[in-house]
Amino acid sequence: MPDLALPFFDFLLPALVALGVLLFAWRRREGPASEGPDRGAPRTTSGTASSARALGAVAFGAALLAAWWSVFGEFAVPSASRVLAAKDWIPWSIVAAIATAGLARFERARRIVPSGGAPLVLSLLVLLAMRTRISAGGSGILHALLVFLVAMATWTALELSSERLRGPLPSLVLALAAAGSAVALALSGDTALGRLCGSLSAVSVASAFVARQRRVFTLSGGPVAIVSVVLIGSWTSTWISQTTPLSSIVLLWAAVAVPSAAGIGPLSTWPATRREIARVALTLALALAGVWIAFQARPGTHGY
């Protein structure tokens, strides 16, 4: 009998956690009696509420922290006797993203940490994950700057597309792209981070279900920051460790960023169905190309 513990704790449990919190955050609330033709009808009051978006960050964050624990079995704490690897900063960045998304509910805090604090969190992630290269100076600083720009481009594309495009398909596109990263990283021998990206894919499927139930649902303003942290952290780590080929990582990044940007750019004038089909096709093509390169460069059976 196959061991079901891994798929349960890696994928199903995080997805259920996200589903529960998202359904709670975006629940239909009975608003005050409406006037006019909608009088007495249930009214969604949380659609634009910042609290729902902050809870979205909690949903994605808690789910992925649970997945992290399932995969790595610890939250490594930096100390005199522990130097953290690039990937070890991912859970702390998730916690920071949850905190800043919560702070963004308050007007005064929004002035200090604009855009929900996501740029701040991403810059911290890049600085901490690449500190060894940065301290080496020269090209290391350039690399870090480049990674930060890639991180910002990813977050911006996801944030804008999530804000403008509604329904379950944006989440499913993200699930597809994350699944591509999961397979490519696992094939390259970065199995642990591959599992984490798989968890992100499962959580995205759960959010697609919520988006289908609640048409006002959006990934922007919280969940997108968590998604960016996980993907950028995983890609950066596997790049620093020289596990996954760089060309594969670039294609996996493109599978996330390009369809999102296209959805709010050249494809924005297309009918919704046609646009989303094009986005799915674009994501699939880029992710498969990234997986194919990782497959070609895979280290055999690892000798196991």
Partner: peptide, 11 residues
Amino acid sequence: PDRDKHLRGSD
């Protein structure tokens, strides 16, 4: 060599 590459990686 394949196993060594995996051992050198982040796993």
